[in-house]
Design a protein around this nucleic acid. Sequence first.
DNA 1: CTAACTTGTGGTTAATAGTGGGTAATAATC
DNA 2: GATTATTACCCACTATTAACCACAAGTTAG
Lengths: 153, 153
Amino acid sequence: MGTQTFTGEFRYSIDAKGRLNIPAKFRKALPDTSEDTFVVTRGEEENIVVYSLDKWREKEQELLMLSSKLRAHRAYKRQATRFATPLKFDSQGRVMIPTNLLQFAGIDKEVVIIGMIDEIEIWDPDILGRYEETEFQLDAEDIEAIDKYTRSS
Amino acid sequence: MGTQTFTGEFRYSIDAKGRLNIPAKFRKALPDTSEDTFVVTRGEEENIVVYSLDKWREKEQELLMLSSKLRAHRAYKRQATRFATPLKFDSQGRVMIPTNLLQFAGIDKEVVIIGMIDEIEIWDPDILGRYEETEFQLDAEDIEAIDKYTRSS
DNA sequence: CTAACTTGTGGTTAATAGTGGGTAATAATC
DNA sequence: GATTATTACCCACTATTAACCACAAGTTAG
């Protein structure tokens, strides 16, 4: 088990006790080394991002390469770490997301979970809708830049 | 097994349990590495696009090269994966297409399946008809541009 | 021409997934 | 240290999905 790629979109809801189900498909995609654990943190947008424990360890390695002498580096590192929380899911596959993250993402009950290959995003449906109309839009320039980027690697 | 090219057009129907048969011809065209799995996602038009698992893995590799730090990259990656779903077909060669994709493509029961060499399109017959009269039309200029494009590669 | 196989379609049963709730353990508060 | 709130650990229910089995029409092979 563990092709380790997350795809697709799901609409779930947080129950009265604050538990959120992670799609079984995503849990199955986890490698054994992730031992039933996801790491959640703030996203760049108004959402929550979820990594496998493995992926998070990679991110940590990346952060270690930054210089603590540079203000921007410190800020970035701090921003990336301060909200990161490892969450082990229960026997039903649910996790309890910290309230500060829920607040940040404007989530109360309803939730959209989006698979992003190597990470997962959790959105409030309304906020997601707003972003779709604005920030998600890509113009021809963007596309071209992305095309170049992938070709050059 | 696996010339991996899909050609021809088929008219099938989705049964009461939401199962859609994939033409045997297309299933046979799959390489063994695709292990009885297709990946379905939204098309650019009002339809569903189907890739072989192999082809999808290529796409994934490309997406993995993008940076999660850049807004445009995230948006592109999100758009590409949100609706992508790997579907293993049952012993009869049928798949269960997610309802959100069916809705997007305006499909209820009747379906037209079109082989497109390296991918497959699934259309609602009526919608396909409408598109044939408009968006599918090519003028001389289009053809000329295509000719140039293929020569330059 | 007949027999064996393939193909598209239909249904039945068993397993899984998502959701809800109860109780014990743990942590926080006074 | 007692009380309350929070979290972890079970157990339960329902709908959906997956795994089988079946069959008729059409093809292919002998």
